[in-house]
Design a protein around this nucleic acid. Structure first.
Lengths: 71, 71
DNA sequence: ACATTAAGTCAGGTTATCTTGACATAGTCA
DNA sequence: TGACTATGTCAAGATAACCTGACTTAATGT
C-alpha cells in the first residue's frame, strides 16, 4: 500500500522569499530534513505543523496543500 | 513532553447531522476509534484525514480545527 | 585549489496516528 | 428482563511523521 503525499507549494513559497530549507525549518521549529521530506513529497506534515506553515505564509492550509481538489 | 490536541468542532458537526461516531467513521473511511480519539482530544487527524473531514462538511480545515487562532 | 552553502539522502531511533478486537457503561425499547 | 445502540476505553501492532548525525553532490566565491 504505497500512498503518495499531497501536492504542495512549499518550495515555491520558500523560493519567493529566498529562504533556504534550513531557514524555513528554523521558522517552523522543525528539522531541515523534515522540510526537505515535505517538499520532496516523502510525507505530509502533521496537522499542527500544517497550521504553522499556513500561519507563516499567511495562507489557508487548502491553498498550500492540495488533495486533488476535484471540483 | 505532553502536548494537547487542537480543539475541534467534530462532535458538534456530527451532532448537527445526527450521525453516530460509527457512521461518521464510515464516511471518512477510518475506524470508529479514530473518530472517537479525535473528538475526545487524544490526538489530531493526519493532514489527509483533515482534508477528508473538511470536504465532508464542506468547510475549511481552519474552521473545524483550531490552534488557538491568536488574533 | 579550497571553503562554504544548499539540497538531497540515508541510517537508526522516538512518538503520533492509525488498525482490529475486546470490553464496560449508559440509554432506549419491546 | 433482555436485546440493541452509542460512546468511551484498553491492548497490541503497523505505519507515518518526526528527530539527530552523517554523508554526497552541485553551485558559488575567494
Amino acid at each position: 500500500m504505497v500512498l503518495i503525499a499531497l501536492k504542495n507549494r512549499l518550495k515555491i513559497l520558500r523560493a519567493e522569499r529566498d529562504w533556504s530549507q534550513a531557514e524555513l525549518a528554523g521558522r517552523l521549529d522543525v528539522s531541515r530534513q523534515a522540510v526537505n521530506a515535505i517538499e520532496t513529497g516523502k510525507h505530509d506534515p502533521s496537522l499542527p505543523l500544517a497550521f504553522r506553515i499556513a500561519r507563516l505564509f499567511d495562507m489557508r492550509i487548502e491553498d498550500i496543500f492540495d488533495d486533488g481538489e476535484h471540483a
